[in-house]
Design a protein around this nucleic acid. Sequence first.
DNA 1: AGCCTGTTCGT
DNA 2: CGAACAGGC
Length: 481
Amino acid sequence: MWFRSDLRVYDNPALMAARNQGTTCAIYFATPEQWREHDWSEGKISLVVAQVEALSRELAKLNIPLTVLRVERFADIPERLACWVRECSVTQVFFNYEYEINESACADAVTAMLHGESVPAWGYHDQCIIPPGQIRTRTGGVFKVFTAFKKVFLEQFPTRSRGIFNRPEMQHAKPFKGNSDALSEIPVERRWRSLWPMGENEAHDRLNRFIEHKINGYRDDRDVPSLDSTSALSPYLTLGCLSTTQCMHAAMSANYGRYQDGNPGVLTWINELIWREFYRHLMFAFPDICRYRPFKPETDLLPWSRDEALFSAWKTGQTGFPIVDAAMRQLLHLGWMHNRLRMVTAMFLTKDLFIDWRWGERYFMQMLVDGDLASNNGGWQWSASTGVDAAPYFRVFNPVRQSERFDPKGVFIRRYLPELAALDDRSIHQPSAAQARACGYPLPIVDHRLAVDSVKAHFKALSLIDDDKAMPTVNALSVMG
DNA sequence: AGCCTGTTCGT
DNA sequence: CGAACAGGC
Ligand SMILES: Cc1cc2nc3c(=O)[nH]c(=O)nc-3n(C[C@H](O)[C@H](O)[C@H](O)COP(=O)(O)OP(=O)(O)OC[C@H]3O[C@@H](n4cnc5c(N)ncnc54)[C@H](O)[C@@H]3O)c2cc1C
């Protein structure tokens, strides 16, 4: 069994298939250089190391030895894997598919290399509730609108989704001794492990606690960051400590097994799981997502700003907009940010500062413990209005309005911006110049109104190009300035 | 899962 | 003078 971002023994299709074929051993490749190239955060790397350690203990209980090898890049994997296969006399290899281009190319190269050794390699779909590519429009196309995708997803859920797999049965004896020493060479930070304790049991506990205590209120509370009312399961899902299939079934169990009607909290949470599913299916269909291409190609013509000073103020939480700054400091502190605030901060970067969404996408990836290409790219292209089913360009968030709506008493702002704690509930969303000075807090780095007017003009110029195909692109752009 | 502005109707 | 709604971006 070749493990990647599917670091669990429960509900693991490839592991189950391997075990059904006979005596099983497991391997994991730590690829620090590749992780760096993929902008994995320090936190995510620390957590993956912790999770592989935890996995090796879980596998040991089943008498399945785990070997951890360190190579720099994916390109080194096929040969090392083939070597290991020979050494251990492995006759078949099992793995779960990943849909990012480099990950899937790596699995293809592994399959080809092993084929040369007459060792078959079998891939399984584990990341999606319904395997990508299976949800189709009537004409066989790919859904680009979420609500349409969701409708068909729910219709086909009973027939196209797999059931949950149990943990495989214990083997009578370990074929050989495992070795995860290579993990100790990877530098990790303690902080992340205490913020996000790893282990499959931990993930299950958190899922159960969420279902027991929070899912009923999820519809009404999910948008209020100070309530901590969401599951915070995303880091566990990203590493594969838990599958979305397990989440789906857990949610249904709190709703008499139903997924289309009943408990509104459950239905809203399932809706979010389907967003994750939607973005993964899209990445499978459009792998160009991994090449920093926007869904709407014409938006590449927008004259995005390259202002490093503004970008830096955003990154460090010094924009002078309290809700934005509190959110960015939550990201720095936890390696995680509430969904509402991801939208607010992404919208602020791309619309108020008019900075290229790819800068933000990359920075999020470098900071998040739940960094996931499909969801992150989906979220950024939604916010930047460059995506399929994205926010229309004119539907711009006002950061102060968002703050008043979703943090009315400033509880969240005070948590991350203690320097503003003394301000009253009304002005904390938008301190006056005098208040800001007194608190040692920056003045707003942009005029929201002006910024919004200008960004709308840029997008409108684009739609002119789009409407009038006869007009050469370059001319339209130079007219716009 | 938007926000602003203007209008109309009621108090 | 506020709520409710419509329309534009
Ligand atoms: C700009 C931006 C960037 C994002 N980057 C990431 C990312 O790198 N990794 C990531 O996992 N999510 C990302 N998201 C989606 C979402 O913000 C997080 O999944 C969510 O905040 C995680 O918190 P939670 O586990 O408490 O979510 P819950 O509210 O408990 O939802 C449960 C699960 O559903 C999925 N989910 C929820 N909302 C979304 C969504 N909007 N899109 C896709 N999946 C969703 C997640 O897997 C989440 O763990 C991003 C969203 C935006 C707007």
